[in-house]
Write a protein that binds this DNA or RNA. Sequence first.
DNA 1: ACCCTTGCTGAGTCCGGTCTCAATGCCTAC
DNA 2: GTAGGCATTGAGACCGGACTCAGCAAGGGT
Lengths: 419, 419
Amino acid sequence: MPTIETGLTSMDRNVIDATKGVKGPLRKADMSTDASRRRDVTVADVAKAAQVSKAQAARALGNYGAVSEDVRERVQAAAEELNYRPNELARSMNTGKSNTIGVVVGDIENPHFGLATRGITDTAKRSGFNVILVNTDEDRAAEVDAVRVLLDKRVDGLIVAPASSVETQHLQEVHSSGRPLVLLDRTAQGLDVDTVAVDMEGISHESTRYLIEAGHSRIAFISTLRTNDSYATGLSLGSSQISDRRDGIMRAFREAGLKEPDDLVRFNADGPETIKKITRELLQQPDPATAIIASDGLIGLSVVEAIQDLGLAIPDDVSFLMYDDFAWTRLTRPPLTVIAQPVYEMGVAAAEALIRQIQGRKAPAAKPEFAATLVKRGSVGGPSGGKGGHDGRRKENLPTTKTSPDVHFPLNGAPAQST
Amino acid sequence: MPTIETGLTSMDRNVIDATKGVKGPLRKADMSTDASRRRDVTVADVAKAAQVSKAQAARALGNYGAVSEDVRERVQAAAEELNYRPNELARSMNTGKSNTIGVVVGDIENPHFGLATRGITDTAKRSGFNVILVNTDEDRAAEVDAVRVLLDKRVDGLIVAPASSVETQHLQEVHSSGRPLVLLDRTAQGLDVDTVAVDMEGISHESTRYLIEAGHSRIAFISTLRTNDSYATGLSLGSSQISDRRDGIMRAFREAGLKEPDDLVRFNADGPETIKKITRELLQQPDPATAIIASDGLIGLSVVEAIQDLGLAIPDDVSFLMYDDFAWTRLTRPPLTVIAQPVYEMGVAAAEALIRQIQGRKAPAAKPEFAATLVKRGSVGGPSGGKGGHDGRRKENLPTTKTSPDVHFPLNGAPAQST
DNA sequence: ACCCTTGCTGAGTCCGGTCTCAATGCCTAC
DNA sequence: GTAGGCATTGAGACCGGACTCAGCAAGGGT
């Protein structure tokens, strides 16, 4: 039996590398990148150095099974010496766990998802999970693909913000295959899985009512949602989130006994230019909108810019409301009235729910309900050219005034009908 | 030889699952989650169904080696029937390629990184790579850990925005171990790897000069950089990026023959409250700052807010300049003067460089140089409490007319000293 | 003194693919 | 007619760990 060198310095380990990794007569053609051919130190190497069996070395390193103190020390010393690092791929292969979760979102560039992702990664890290992130650009085909790739990579679970709430076979399959799945932001038709989202219909209704009470009856809604359907097509809009928002708006109108502004609902607002164009149309058409609701922060940005370009003032000429309470909305003059969602917390909740599923623990205790809140700042006033209701109050223009607008409102007064 | 059922419907495949996956007398205790025990369809299953050897099935599915048309068809049909999906983990194990790259950033929540990440993921996807994203919160320990975990997961390469440009052993090890590595935004001392970053010193110098020419001599700089070192400690600040910016500022001062505002350089600006506090201090101390440079968009947000809270006007009372050209900077009144960096493009470049390394292609052609640009909008004016001289440019905002010091800057002429 | 338990240990299998190698059959060339 | 060439094919090794199982020695109980 040959004497085994244990006195290797870490400098010497390449020697070991050199002797192995040479499978047969055929080696990968490109030996140019000498680095690409390097072989990592394995348990076998460590075992040899520590003069124990591979099994024992693996036990010591993997921290399982019974190992004597003596062996453990020898192995650990050898591992350190050789600079051993476990191959998580191999480990995952026979544990069946990859300690990785897949996250599929529409657009990380959007701070909404950025923040949610932050909540997810923070939580995941805390439980020892890594996150593979995939962007879909809100494209369903990309999403289907993303889900498949992640499944192929054997992620332990998936968090998806589905681009479509209607076409959901791919998610259906994930679920019925038994892989943990949590939906974020949006629901999926006929898919009964943990979903972390706020009550969009409710907050949309509340916000619209707020606008209506301020005197508006021409309220526009702009969304990125890609759809060929005209508004009229009916209830399901492909995205539960957007459907719900629209439904909330319309309910508020019905309850107020006002004509629903179907003609002011606009989709396919992709890209700044499109959004600006839509905004101009809405404001310059005959019987224009007197208030605009932007479906997310990115849209809001361009809408506000378009309004400014038009030389119109907020809220004197147009009232403005948007989803997502980004910090910058406090910096504009007036500060913007927004619908705040606990995005970070929702990310956290989604990750927690997923991890709970992964670990097989059932009963999510009490499924936390997340609520969006209307943060009234200064971008909503009365309609200017409007025909309805009370007059618009003015903001004292330049000298910054903090806090919310002076819109005095019957704080709790319920409008006409309702149930 | 038993007849093999090929007429399975996809509904039936669980039958197969049931017969396998039962290793021995000992099974994982928790059989409750019947889903967690399910076994995936493997090449072996497909091979059996297609009545060919495992090797042939693998070849047909993996699309390598020689396979007859007949076999290929049978295998593909069987695969489809059984709903076969390759196990990328297993595949990675013996190809040594995981088609995954690791990205380590300080904070995805920060739109700067959000955008860069977008550039990276877009590019990665285009080349068939996935991205594992890790957040470090700009904490070096977390970064070391992240790098190790990603290496253990056998990512094909790493893109890191190092939290520290000084303590870089972990990156050094990555590099010397031969794993592809690209740095983003910041350099690392003594590490000669592809780095995608802009010339910070240059743009910082240019911007500062712009401020000086506007009449400022009390210019503050606020950065998140965590450091115990006082400013005076000297050149290396732990972050190349921040060092460079500071150096650029100071060079502009030296060149203008002005006293360097060492006392106005502030670090450790974490969290909105801290930033606001710092801002207040800078503006209210005796001999206060007349201009503030915010080191990133997140800081800028709080600085502007603090200025507004103080009831001060930009640029009449304070001039403001920040790094990162976010869309919202155009919405404030006045719009903010910013230093724009081609963040998305840098993300793309980083990913491209990394993938080039991974694929062994050398010669990055010509390493693209990225340049930041000063976007002059409305937040820089002359100092208000200035000591006299020619006036700064006014925004036609408030009727104030003030004067600024007479620091005449020789536009191109080199100042006194230098080498 | 004898049987059992308990603690360690090494040999070897398995995860799910990729890849080598030898064997086969068929076609063409000499 | 037969050797050589080429496309196909199946058996099996292998990647790097986790895990089963049988062997073995020391310690406990009776």
